[in-house]
Design a protein around this nucleic acid. Sequence first.
DNA 1: CACACGGCTTGCTAGC
DNA 2: GCTAGCAAGCCGTGTG
Lengths: 85, 85, 85, 85
Amino acid sequence: MTAKEGHNSRIIREHLEDMIERIEGFEADKKYAADKQKAVYTEAKALGYDTKILRKIVALRKRDPGAVAEEEATLDMYREALGML
Amino acid sequence: MTAKEGHNSRIIREHLEDMIERIEGFEADKKYAADKQKAVYTEAKALGYDTKILRKIVALRKRDPGAVAEEEATLDMYREALGML
Amino acid sequence: MTAKEGHNSRIIREHLEDMIERIEGFEADKKYAADKQKAVYTEAKALGYDTKILRKIVALRKRDPGAVAEEEATLDMYREALGML
Amino acid sequence: MTAKEGHNSRIIREHLEDMIERIEGFEADKKYAADKQKAVYTEAKALGYDTKILRKIVALRKRDPGAVAEEEATLDMYREALGML
DNA sequence: CACACGGCTTGCTAGC
DNA sequence: GCTAGCAAGCCGTGTG
């Protein structure tokens, strides 16, 4: 059975390696995009934009505008109740 | 100066929008790759692989093997000193 | 030198253990406080408060009010430029 | 109804404030413990200990020893299959 | 001395 | 409802 086990092991090993390499490929894709994105932020910063705000804008645009509005209304309500306005 | 200001505002606005759209494009790329990657993990899990371990393997392979070995040696040293072996 | 080494090892080991136990003690303190805090959020939620907003309020109160105001002004400026108001 | 509303508002406001202050109290407790803990790490580092490893040790000790052993066995299996040993 | 980088911590989301 | 995984923000570190 040694041969067979060896065979199965090789299959398993190759299968495992295959999956991991696919994962790593997508990891590389993510990194590539993240680097490009970072370059845009760097450029924006050099031009005087506030990147922290830029990030907030990007996050806001991801969300449903209605949900954002509702959350802000609730937040304002709480802030007002606490004298934070 | 209203016209000029209006003009500059439009430039600024378009510039800002342009940068944000580039950022969002890369964001979409990241998401696409992340989704594909997640699908591989899902597939692996369905096949009986331990995805938590898989993630550790991927993380290990990212690092310098020598550095990993050294860290593990130090960790073992500490564990032994503490009777954790 | 075995005895001496053994001695030093014991010292080291006890010192290591001592530090770790102090760290763990503070870890327990953190957990205790975190649990109490979570209970307040749970209670608030049961009473109908929006805990997500509550967390934002707590975060806002941590910050310098002037800095918050300035950031919000900048954010509004960007949002307006992008037609997000 | 203005008076009554004002009354209820005040109740709400005080209730809200009360909860937030309790949350902030626990937040302060967490910070206090975290600062003390950080000081131990700083001290350890000054004495030549590897704080990254120390953190791993602390994390390991939190977990069930059997679960740790099992995970490490699985990890080794995967690493061996991939020629990472 | 500012700036980018990596690690750590925290908050959010999705899946069991 | 809870826990694990994910992404964002923060902070301390090292470098130009």
